[in-house]
Amino acid sequence: MKKRLLAMLLAGAMCAGLTACGDKPADTQQPADPGASTDQPADNAGGNYKIDVILKTTASEYWQYVMAGAQAYDNEHDNVTVEIKGAPSETSYDEQLNMIQTDLASDYDGFVIAPLQADMVANLIKGQTKPVVACDTKIEAPEIISFVGTGNEEAGKLGGAAAAKMAKERGWEEIKAIEIAGVEGDTTNSDRMAGYKAGIESEGGTFLDDEVQYADAVADKAVAAMEGIISKFPEGIAIICANNDDMAMAAAKVAANNENYKNTVFLGFDGTMSACNAILEGRLTMSVAQMAYEMGYKSVEAVVTKLDGGEVEAFINSGADVVTPENAQQRKDTLQGYLDSVK
């Protein structure tokens, strides 16, 4: 974080005709995503902005990547100061709400918020005239200028198609798929499921809607779900797709010693470091990777673009990719770089 106050004091100690240099160091740790730039970068607009970034938590791997992206924008733009904070955990609802309420009354020029309770945050920001961007999770409120996050259905389709292709390569004649899902009724879960179904069917496979197993997005319940699947389908299933990596890895572990499931494609979602390790070690087949770094970067960029008077899209897709044994090491190295940048 730039030391603006120190820079001002040093400048004041010099003769009045001198000005401080605004150049950034050449060795910024993480480059911006090339697709994240705008036609008129904020640097050229002349405004000096202080942006508040409030995440669900700063105590998890995924949110460290989001932090790295937001910090990278700060590093690359001398006229922007980004302050990042988050709740102690993703169940610290009151702590985050108090944090947001306090910061809305402070001297920030704009806000990036990843809400733990979107409806409560919508109430807090009522009447807010400074730009507010929702990051990772939608906030249904007119004050929100943009939602920056993963296009879950599109990402799921990408993963589903890749899984079906790999299942064919592994010799499956009937490409049938069962999903171990998250929380029933959750929008993110529903979007990912719809994407998986579309992607698998685009490659001639069959998504077994009636066999969906809801496991509340936790590994323990995914274990029970997978045990049930093996009992009902002892001959094996071509694809087991899950709403997140933890559930996919848990399911794969259950089936690890079952001969009829040795060629099953286990597909997760998130593309975390642990998933990369599991793919490299053969404990998971593939994962749909969310681009959390880009999410953090583009969220701050959207606030600055609005402050500069520019147009901001209502939804900014931070992107997705499929992690496979071929690119898992590269993905792992990239993620480690993000983690190193926020230490």
Rank of each mutant, 00 (worst) to 15 (best):
A238I: 06
N243G: 11
K138W: 14
K168I: 05
E184N: 14
M249Y: 03
R192S: 07
V218M: 14
A161L: 15
I237T: 09
K221N: 14
F147D: 03
D246E: 15
A167V: 04
K168P: 01
A181K: 08
T188W: 00
A162C: 12
M193D: 00
G159C: 05
A224K: 05
A194W: 07
D136S: 06
A177N: 06
I240G: 08
A181W: 00
G149M: 11
A161E: 07
I180T: 03
R170M: 02
G127S: 09
E227A: 03
G199T: 05
A252S: 06
E143M: 12
N123D: 12
M247V: 13
P142G: 11
Y214S: 05
I240C: 12
A222F: 05
E169V: 11
A134H: 13
E154W: 00
S190Q: 15
I230V: 09
G228E: 03
E140F: 11
I229K: 07
D136W: 00
D220S: 13
A222Y: 13
E179P: 07
I178S: 01
G159F: 06
A194I: 02
D246R: 02
V254M: 07
E173K: 15
S202C: 04
P142L: 02
A248D: 10
G185N: 09
A118Y: 01
E143W: 03
A163V: 01
D220W: 05
K157L: 05
G199K: 05
A222D: 10
A118G: 09
A181F: 10
A242G: 07
Y196R: 14
F207I: 11
G160D: 13
G182H: 02
D220G: 04
A198S: 07
A215P: 07
C135K: 05
A198H: 05
E153G: 15
N189W: 00
G171H: 08
A155P: 02
E173G: 11
D220V: 07
Q117K: 13
S190E: 14
G171K: 11
I229E: 01
E174I: 10
L158N: 03
A122F: 12
I230S: 00
I145V: 10
A219H: 10
I139A: 12
N243W: 02
N152W: 07
V218W: 01
A155W: 04
T150L: 08
